[in-house]
């Protein structure tokens, strides 16, 4: 177990190193740099003046040196300065993380609360009209672009309430946060709930077919008791799987949802940073995302072992 953990952690470091090289190189391929964007925003074109900015930011140094400077800073906890705001990157990123984290957590809670029960119902009532309806519902959840769903909700709010939930200042209480983020979270979590529902349904069906459930039923235990005692316990696995798989996906959904609902989180911020060619910002944000994704995957694998002792990691 311990050696497995050490092995996984080492692999994590290798992966993160790979991510850092990949994002560093990808950004350098992107045409145009911060000087181009800054000059463009003022309608200017003088190449000599641009070169001054480039030299100022050290963008004319050899790539390996630039990479080393970044990595060295990163290892010492220095993320550098944003090219646009000229403030420390850490000051720009840190206050935005809790906003995105809250939104993501709320979306996941929504996904689990809606997905698991519906999946169970769908499995228990297999091949009934209700089952078909639920399956179509879950498939449509996987088919709708989350930003469109968000827009539809906005349009509905406008029509019925005349106003919309929009983030105009940081809420102060828990309930205010909840009110602010509930609708965006539902629109981004709908997809995940559909996925959880599908996985719950199929693993429930598998369990229901298995002998011990039949035995339990034949022993005269009530249907409901069997379903919830035996089968539901087995639904925990698909939920964990989904959380693992969905973390990376969820982030994509968060980007568009934060854009639609004007939520100043890290996801939307990343798009802006790419647009501005704000290298320190993009690089560090992507590293942050990678760390989250890789850690979540590790935690999911460890949880697997806890929930299902049959799984062994001898690899």
């Amino acid at each position: 177990m311990l050696s497995y953990l050490i092995r996984r952690l080492l692999l994590m470091v290798v992966t993160l190193f790979g991510v850092s090289v990949a994002i560093f190189l990808l950004l350098r391929i992107v045409p145009g740099n911060i000087a181009d964007i800054l000059f463009d925003s003022a309608g200017l074109i003088d190449p000599a003046e641009k070169q001054k900015i480039v030299a100022d930011l050290g963008l004319d140094l050899p790539l390996p040196l630039q990479y080393w400077q970044w990595l060295n800073g990163l290892l010492h906890g220095d993320l550098g300065f944003s090219y646009v705001s000229e403030k420390p990157v850490i000051d720009e990123i840190l206050p935005r993380i809790p906003i995105t984290a809250r939104l993501a957590a709320l979306a996941m809670i929504f996904a689990v609360c809606a997905g698991v029960p519906l999946g169970v119902i769908s499995a228990v009532r297999q091949n009934t009209k209700l089952d078909y309806a639920l399956r179509v519902l879950s498939l449509s959840g996987l088919s709708m672009p989350s930003f469109w769903l968000g827009l539809l909700i906005l349009m509905a709010c406008v029509r019925w309430f005349g106003t919309i939930p929009i983030y105009d200042r940081a809420p102060e209480t828990f309930w205010a946060w909840l009110a602010m983020l509930a609708i965006p979270a539902a629109s981004v979590g709908f997809r995940s709930s559909a996925l959880i529902m599908r996985l719950t349904r199929s693993s429930m069906l598998e369990v229901l077919r298995q002998d011990f459930v039949r035995t339990a039923k034949s022993k005269g235990l009530s249907d409901t008791a069997v379903t919830y005692d035996h089968a539901l316990r087995n639904a925990v696995l698909p939920v964990i799987t989904t959380i693992g798989v969905e973390t990376a996906f969820l982030f994509g959904g968060l980007i568009v949802t934060e854009t639609v609902f004007n939520i100043p989180g890290v996801a939307r911020f990343l798009v802006e940073a790419i647009r501005w060619r704000d290298y320190p910002m993009v690089q560090n944000l992507v590293m942050f995302i990678a760390v989250v994704v890789v850690s979540v995957n590790l935690i999911v694998d460890l949880l697997y072992m806890l929930v299902d002792p049959r799984i062994r990691y001898s690899e």
Partner: peptide, 22 residues
């Protein structure tokens, strides 16, 4: 395998975003 893991550490949309930008 290692390269694959690098790819999977990044959200699909983020990858696509950076690639289309470049």
């Amino acid at each position: 395998q290692r390269v694959t893991e690098v790819f999977q550490a990044l959200p699909l949309l983020v990858m696509a975003l950076v690639i289309t930008a470049s």
